[in-house]
Structure formats: C-alpha cells, structure tokens
C-alpha cells in the first residue's frame, strides 16, 4: 500500500505538469476556436462551430490543407527513400562515414533564412547554380526552367525541404542501424545476401522501432511545417507555399496584413492537432510489432 502511495507521490508532479502545460492548453485551444476574437481589448464573441463552418468553405484553407498533405506524403516519401538510400550506402562500408553523416546533417544546424537564401541562389533562373549546371552539361532546354515560377515554386520548396530533412532522418536511421550487431550482416554475407537483401530482411525489421518513431516525428514536423516554407517566401509567402501552419499565422497574427482572427486561427490549430494525432495513431497501429531483443 505504501508502495502505491509512494508511486503516486512521485508521479503527481509530472502528471500536474502534463495537465497544466499540455491537456489544459489543448482544451483551451479548442475552447478559443469557438470564438470570434481579434485578440485586442475587445470582447470575444461566442460563435459555436462557425469558425469550422467557415474553414470548410474557405478555399485558402483547403489550399493550405492540400499543400500540407503533399508535403506530408510526397515530401515524406522522398525524405525516407533518400534517408534509407543513404543509410544503405553509408553502411555499405564506404570510407568517410562520419564525414557523410556530418554533411547530410549540416542543413539542420544552419538557420532556415540562410538555407532559403542559398536555395534562392540555386533556383535563380539566370545565374542560379541549378540552371547554369544544367546548361553546362548541355541540357539547355531544362536549364531554362523557371523553378520558382508560381507553377513550380511549391515543388521547388519541397525539394529543398526534402534536402533539409533527409539529413535529420538519416541520422536517426543510422543510429538505429548502428545498434544492429555486425555479425548479423556477416552471417547474411555468408548466406549470399546482397545489399538489398540485407537492407530489407535485416536492417528494416531490426530498426522497426526507430522507423516508427521517425515516421511519427515526420508527421508532427510536416503537419506543423511553418519555418522553411515561410522563409522560402522571404518578404511575403506566396499562397502557393501556404501550409496549415502558415495560414494559421497569416490569419491570427497580422503578418503584413492586419488580419487578426485569433479564433479562426485557433480553429486551424485544432485541425492540425486532430490531423497529426489521427495520423500518429494510424501509423502506430499499422506498425505495431513485437519488441525485438538482440
């Protein structure tokens, strides 16, 4: 009995913190989304689910929603395909493993503003690195592509974003791979396994837990994606780059235009929360597996 009481005593502070800083604010967020409120001294007005009804009919919201999904799935696809590819390559025993790890991770420690300035230079139609390189190797037609024109800018931003995030997830996956005893791979070598066999039959199942966590982290990052596309827009984020996070900010925080619709912005926040939460539950359910011991 004392044991149980003691446990309760120790758990209480953590529980209280969780309650104060997570559950209650989450509850409040939902509560605020039921109001029309500018955030200035004026009274907030209760409007029920009107903000959600407005969201449903708001083309800009759906644009942001679509962009967020594209980022989540298309971006996620490339982030993980590349991260896995590099994982295989780096673990194939090539030289300079630490160097590659550093190089790939580097974008994560550079400020997003510097990164977007760099990508703006890469994508510049005339003297940009991409087009001059393409022209240098004789791809003149392709070298005239306007990568940041309104039709292309989202995908251009996404490519840059994939580049940034690949390094991060590469590090996570590599850390998982490093835990796998080397004799697993040696045994496979003797059995005649090639790189793909080793990746598919040994690496993937044995870093399953790391993959699950990586997917969850990606979902959280992608759903609340704000910084990078925002910085990619420099002075003003073009609508083509709106994510839910950016639209929330535009609607609630008077970015350039005095739109001060805090209640509406909060409703967007609630949508993001629900989206992230349900995707995480889904991923965890789909990827549920026995704990491995090795």
């Amino acid at each position: 009995m004392i044991g149980k009481r003691l446990i309760g005593l120790f758990v209480t502070p953590a529980l209280a913190i969780y309650l104060c800083f997570f559950l209650i604010p989450t509850g409040f967020t939902f509560y605020f989304s039921l109001f029309d409120w500018s955030g200035f001294g004026t009274e907030a007005q209760f409007i029920g689910f009107d903000n959600y009804r407005r969201l449903w009919n708001d083309p800009t919201f759906w644009l942001s929603f679509r962009n967020t999904l594209a980022l989540l799935f298309v971006g996620g696809f490339f982030v993980f395909v590349l991260a896995f590819l590099y994982t295989i390559l780096i673990n194939s025993g090539i030289w300079g493993k630490k160097l590659f790890r550093l190089v790939f991770f580097l974008p994560n420690v550079v400020s997003v503003v510097a990164l977007s300035a760099m990508w703006a230079y890469i994508y510049n139609p005339r003297y940009g690195l991409l087009n001059t390189s393409l022209k240098a190797v004789g791809l003149d037609e392709m070298g005239r592509t306007l990568w940041t024109s309104p039709d292309n800018i989202f995908w251009a931003m996404l490519a840059a974003l994939v580049w940034v995030f690949t390094g991060f997830f590469l590090i996570l996956l590599l850390a998982g791979v490093d835990k796998i005893p080397p004799d697993m791979y040696e045994a496979a070598d003797l059995e005649g396994a090639n790189l793909w066999h080793k990746f598919w039959y040994i690496t993937v199942p044995m870093i399953w837990d790391v993959m699950t966590i990586s997917f969850v982290i990606w979902i959280i990052n992608a759903v609340k994606m704000f910084e990078f596309p925002f910085a990619f827009g420099f002075l003003q984020v073009p609508q083509q780059l709106y994510t839910l996070g950016i639209y929330l900010y535009i609607m609630g925080f008077g970015q350039r235009d005095p739109i001060y619709q805090l209640g509406y912005a909060t409703a967007i926040g609630v949508v993001m929360l629900v989206l992230a939460f349900s995707l995480i539950v889904l991923v965890r359910r789909l990827m549920r597996r026995d704990q491995l011991e090795f």
């Binding site: 005893p181 004799d183 003797l190 396994a193 090639n194 199942p205 044995m206 399953w208």
Partner: peptide, 25 residues
C-alpha cells in the same frame, strides 16, 4: 558456413525462417 559466438540469429524471424534464410534469398 559459419556459426557465430553470438549465434547471430535474426530476432524478427522464426527458427524456420532463420534456418531457411539463405535459401529464401
């Protein structure tokens, strides 16, 4: 064929899958 000190069995495979791994690939 080599038998490792740690056995190097694949924890996510059954005994049959472990033994048959080489033939499977």
């Amino acid at each position: 064929a080599m038998v490792f000190q740690s056995y190097a069995l694949y924890p996510h495979m059954t005994v049959a899958e472990n033994i048959g791994f080489g033939m499977k690939i």
